[in-house]
Computed example of a mutant assay.
Amino acid sequence: MDHNFMLLPTVMMNKLAIKEIINCNEVTSRYGLILSQAGAQELVETRAEALSSNGRIEFSGGIIKKLIIKFCDSPFLSQFNYATTLNDLIETFYYFKNETLDEISDDELISLMKKYFDQNCQGSIELLQNRELETLARSIRYGISDYADLCEDTDTSFDEEIYDE
C-alpha cells in the first residue's frame, strides 16, 4: 500500500511534465517542430532514466521545457530528428551536470550546450558530448574559471597556431 502512495506523486508529475512539453508546441511549431503525446511521454521516460543512471534527483523539473525552448530555433533540428535529438540532449544534460560537479547552473549549461551544438558542432551530438562538453567538464574540474570560452577555437589546428606566430 505504501508503494502505491509513493507512485501517485510521480504519475502526477509525469502527467504535468507531458502537458508542459505539449504546450511547448505553441512556440516550436513556428520552427516546424511538433512533439506528439507519445514523443512527450518518451522525453519524460528519458529524463527518468537519465536521472536514475546519473544518480540524480530533480524536484522542480522544467529541464525538458528549457531544452526545447532553447534548441527549437537551431538550424540543425528538423521534424525528422527533433524527438531523437531532444532525447540525446536530455541524457547529455544530466550526464554533464555530474561531470561539471554542479559548478554551473542549469541555464548556463543549457546555453553552452546550444552554443556549442549550433556553432562548433554543426548539430553533432557526438561532437557536443565527446569534444566540447568534455573540454568544459575537464576545465571546471581543474578549476579553470574562464571555461565558457575554452571551446571557441576548436577549428584552429596546431599547425595554424604555429604559423600565426
Rank of each mutant, 00 (worst) to 15 (best):
Ile144Glu: 12
Arg138Trp: 01
Tyr142Trp: 02
Ile69Cys: 04
Asn14Tyr: 01
Leu150Asp: 06
Glu161Asp: 14
Met13Pro: 00
Lys66Asn: 11
Gly62Ile: 09
Glu26Trp: 00
Thr85His: 00
Ile21Trp: 05
Arg47Asn: 02
Leu7Cys: 08
Ile22Tyr: 03
Ser53Gln: 14
Glu45Phe: 08
Leu109Met: 02
Ile140Thr: 06
Ile64Gly: 04
Arg131Asp: 13
Val44Asp: 08
Leu8Asn: 09
Leu127Thr: 12
Asn98Leu: 13
Ala40Leu: 02
Cys121Glu: 07
Ile64Ala: 12
Phe158Ser: 12
Met13His: 09
Leu128Cys: 03
Lys70Ile: 01
Lys70Ala: 15
Thr46Val: 15
Ser139Asp: 13
Glu42Arg: 15
Leu136Glu: 04
Ile162Glu: 14
Leu51Arg: 04
Phe96Ser: 06
Phe96Thr: 06
Leu16Ile: 05
Glu161Leu: 14
Lys115Tyr: 11
Asp155Glu: 12
Val27Asn: 12
Ala148Ile: 05
Phe96Cys: 06
Ala137Cys: 06
Gly61Gln: 04
Leu101Gly: 03
Ile104Phe: 01
Tyr116Ile: 03
Leu109Trp: 05
Asp155Gly: 11
Ser111Val: 01
Asp2Leu: 07
Phe93Gln: 06
Leu16Gly: 09
Ser53Asp: 10
Phe71Ile: 03
Arg56His: 03
Arg131His: 04
